[in-house]
Amino acid sequence: MRRFQLALPRNIDECVKFLAERGPETKVIAGGTDLLPQMKNGLLKPAAVVDLSGVADLRTLRRQDGSGLRVGASVTAREIERDAYVRSAYPALAESGALVGSVQIRNLATVGGNLCNAAPSADMAPPLLALEAEAVVAGPRGRRRVSLSDFFTGVRRTVLAPDELLVELIVPALGPRSGGQYLRHTPRRELDIAVVGVASQITMSDGVCAKARIALAAVAPTPIRATAAEQALEGRPLTAEQIGRAATLAVEAARPISDQRGSADFRRHLVAVLTRRTLTTALERAAR
């Protein structure tokens, strides 16, 4: 591992200032569950590392009256998994938090880290995409908001400039009769990386689907939305037939590769099955 300078900022401003001073060879560390293995394997050789553990502002998870949820970038997967409000209002997000790594890893791994690491298979990305979350980004030029669907730009690449920091995610409030689910396929039940992950989020109104959002992991260079599938559902009752059609359209949105974890064909098959299943569960949950 290359020798690096370690910065321990106490607040977001100090953090941004350090990033601006030190430039592109700086990496941010929160839980370190993605960064440290990459540094140990020599994939990343940062000259400086900014440790967020002293920045309390990044660790808040709070419900906003009538306007959704704010998730600080340093909130851990374990907190997401166990938070009573997240579990009841945003079950897809809670489910994705519960699938990251193991309990020990989840106690360290953060939402911000999962997103900024920008792996195509990041488990927390699909539900946040389906929930139309916005990322709040701080930089020397102030703060900006980025829709999460614009956040990922490539494998392990995001819109963040080297001097910018992901501060929090804003998850909009959901209307009544909304439901969602995240499912993924892995060879073993825990401690594994998604071969495919699918999050579906719907809102029903008068027996028809008012809104549908479907997001996929591990089938493209970035986590993606299956917009054609979403549009096919909106304004229609969610019959098994409609759900099946959406699953077919979701498959068309996927651009998977073949690797050791699964072939492209198998991944397409998984997208169809998991889209069907998550939509079916989302519909059940919306009825509660």
Partner: peptide, 25 residues
């Protein structure tokens, strides 16, 4: 154990890539 036939390198030479059962299995 997955071997890259070009170099004889084991591709999944760690416990994230070489899967053994976990308690949940």
């Amino acid at each position: 154990t997955v071997v890259d036939a070009r170099s004889g390198r084991v591709v999944n030479s760690d416990l994230a890539g070489y899967l053994v059962p976990v308690n949940a299995d």
